[in-house]
Design a binder for these strands. Structure first.
Lengths: 134, 134
DNA sequence: CTGCTCACTCTCCATCGGTAAGTAGCCACT
DNA sequence: AGTGGCTACTTACCGATGGAGAGTGAGCAG
């Protein structure tokens, strides 16, 4: 079992509500737009190549996909496997640690799909009221 | 039950993997750094004033807190109540819709707290390997 | 020797986030 | 009369971040 002490010293517990706490950064990372989608995609369909991933996440730029994958790899959530061929062949898939994130992210994604209608309605109502005030 | 049809027309289902889909935007919003923390705080401790909230979310600027609260209010997740007093008195709390997000966000927050040690370790290992390559 | 594939990598520009100072309205104190 | 303070914002400025698109490298087919 990994504890805080193993890595950075005597901090007993992490708290994202504290300024500069690594758990806040991490929360930000894993909740970021492209990371959620990359992890979700790799979780659903397993290993995937760069170009295929880029197609599945319609709208992502190459730069952002590369950057997101690097960050996830560094964080130990995604594994990058290079097959030394020409043309280049690289595959990405989830590590065991990455797998543990599937549940939380699936729940969040489902929430946004299920409630987007209500949110859109709330926005309309808000905007109408704001117009009246302006 | 709110469905897509109620608001924007004949789209049968929302998919965050589609470019420009409102559910992708929404997912981005609710996963964003300050929104997660604001919703978490209001979920845990109930109604709260601006300044108090600012203290609890150590490190947030006034600008970002205002902006985050406005967005959440517009999305129907947070309710803003103004008491016409001097000095000004404004309270924020979760709407019923906002309450439904507590679970998903708590799970995500817990994940980051529980696994930050492993992630930190993975980063160290990655950085050491990268140094060797450089 | 030209073109093609794949996975980047670089450059340029627009938008975003953070810092810090300003605003409004009323009250208490001097 | 004037000064300062309370609370919740706004605004201006600036560096960091994200997106669009072109360029790179390595090797093989034609």
């Amino acid at each position: 079992m990994a504890t805080a002490e193993n890595v950075t010293g005597p901090m007993a517990s992490w708290d994202p509500y504290t300024r500069g706490c690594p758990s806040r950064d991490l929360l930000d990372q894993i909740g970021s737009k492209w990371a959620v989608l990359v992890l979700g995609e790799l979780g659903k369909h397993g290993a995937c190549r760069f170009t295929r991933l880029r197609q599945r996440l319609a709208g992502v730029s190459e730069k952002m996909l590369t950057q997101t994958l690097r960050t996830l790899e560094r964080d130990g959530l995604v594994r990058r496997t290079v097959y030394p061929e020409v043309p280049p062949h690289v595959e990405y898939d989830l590590t065991p640690l990455g797998q543990t994130l599937r549940g939380p992210l699936r729940v969040l994604t489902q929430w946004s799909v299920e409630h987007v209608g209500e949110v859109l309605a709330a926005r309309q109502e808000y905007d109408v009221r704001a117009e009246g005030t302006a």
